[in-house]
Design a protein around this nucleic acid. Sequence first.
DNA 1: ACATGACCATCAGCGTACGTGATCACGATG
DNA 2: CATCGTGATCACGTACGCTGATGGTCATGT
Lengths: 318, 318
Amino acid sequence: MVMSRLRDVEIKHLVALRAVAEEGTFGRAATRLGYTQSAVSQQIAGLERALGAPVFDRPGGPRPVELTPLGSLLLEHANDVLGRLDAAGAAVERFVRGETGPLVVGTFQSVTTSILPTIVGRLREESPDVDIRLRESNDKEAFPGALVRGELDLAFTLDDDWPGVETEVLFEDPFVVVTPRSDLRAGCFPVQDLVGRGLVGYQLTSCQREIEEGLRRVVDGDLDWVFRTDDNLAVVALVRSGLGAAVVPRLAVDVDDDSVAIHDPEPPIPPRRVGLSWKAGRTLSPVALRFAEIAREACRPLQLSGTRAGAAAAVTTA
Amino acid sequence: MVMSRLRDVEIKHLVALRAVAEEGTFGRAATRLGYTQSAVSQQIAGLERALGAPVFDRPGGPRPVELTPLGSLLLEHANDVLGRLDAAGAAVERFVRGETGPLVVGTFQSVTTSILPTIVGRLREESPDVDIRLRESNDKEAFPGALVRGELDLAFTLDDDWPGVETEVLFEDPFVVVTPRSDLRAGCFPVQDLVGRGLVGYQLTSCQREIEEGLRRVVDGDLDWVFRTDDNLAVVALVRSGLGAAVVPRLAVDVDDDSVAIHDPEPPIPPRRVGLSWKAGRTLSPVALRFAEIAREACRPLQLSGTRAGAAAAVTTA
DNA sequence: ACATGACCATCAGCGTACGTGATCACGATG
DNA sequence: CATCGTGATCACGTACGCTGATGGTCATGT
């Protein structure tokens, strides 16, 4: 921890040592390094003063200098150290270019199954060496804490903002009504008509609670939930089978799936706002910034909310 | 080779980075490093200027600073580099103390079988980690070249001095006459008496040539060499068996061996001077200096030449 | 709401350290 | 013996880096 004799040794000393050892002459080493012979002479002298022993034998006259045994030993270590520094420089260079680096992103189911593959795919395409790690959770409260603790670089979040977390809204995710295909209505679906039909929905996570409270506020009568699952595909399949209807975020369904009918609810339910969050004040890595940029691009088509065409374009454009 | 962005980064920057990261505060890091808070602030600022990006997020107020992703990356490499520097410092320390280091010594047979084990033994005893390598050659001309080329640190040599090689005489190795034990004479042995007896000797290496020329100059008549071998033990064994007499360097025989008789030749043959040589002007490693010192001590009893007692004392005192 | 305290950034000032350029001393070479 | 290529040394000027003081920011406690 103290480096004893090397305490006053600087990188330039090691560089000079190497240059002189390779060139055989203070003057040529100086030229290579962009110094004068005098400077190199003083640098080596300083190195030897710090070590308390010479690193070169100067035969005098025009003969080249030669490493002492101590010089050889030190040179080996110097090459090692300088090699490490080069490696560090290269690593930093790749990092700031966004070519490498760790990136931990928090996500939740509907994002994971819809836009995330597109984003990750594009990022991996332009930077194959980035170490992307995903953590999925449907607990709204899990991510802000993880962000603040530094466990996550970025996280997809919904609505609320938390102290110490900055959020950029990516797009609005409206709720849609899914019914069997036979149920042909134009565009809007009066939510009042849901009363008396069987309903398929999610487990009572925060998202589902949001849906049910939203409906309760605008609907007369009780809603009849006949099945709950967190599997998006199962929900759609059960609707297709005629078991009932569903109210889900648009992101959760494949808008090109013609085996079911998709409608905008009437009156409309306030949409969820999907955002990208990070720890406030934290400098994001270049990879993280690039991820955010790609996410922004990928979500742009989704921002013109409501229309089915927009959503379809966004999700399939990979 | 250029370290790109790390070109202006100095060791102190990495030390400061580590200290701040571990302390969480510029001020405490400054205290630990023996600087003022201002200095550390400027050092980190300089580091960030060199990198072109911040390494710490300063939340402001009394909250501790935190590494940015770039800072984390750099810190990993910094720990690596600083660890290497520590290792280098430790290695240098051990080296200058003479505890480690490579040591290549040139030797020849009679030294190898007599005083060398003593010297090597003592050195290994006080410095078990020294990497001692021996190279044996009976060619007188081999070692000076190897010394000058830097292939050897030290070499035992005989007599002549070579350009570019410095030599310190360790002791004189007189020639002795070896005869069967039955041949009881007091002290001196007239070499003239060798004529007409069978003689055992070495192959015609430079040493043996020296012996034979020396004898020819003082002896009337031809000498009869009945057997030649380079094996010291064989020479003595053949003398013991009565095959003949031998003239050998005293170092080549065990002076305590009572199965043969050992005499000083009359007239005396000029003794060989055994020396320790090294490349002129070359700084010797601490291990090499210690080796030379031990060799000097070990050979001191041999310097009082001629007497059997002196030689015996030197060789057996390990 | 306000004062307090802990923290970092910035500034001016100053000493030192470092590189330059000139000169000296040395040894090989012809 | 003169020359040349070498490293060491010196005086000099600049520039860098540290200090000490000050100001701004944010959390905390009353």
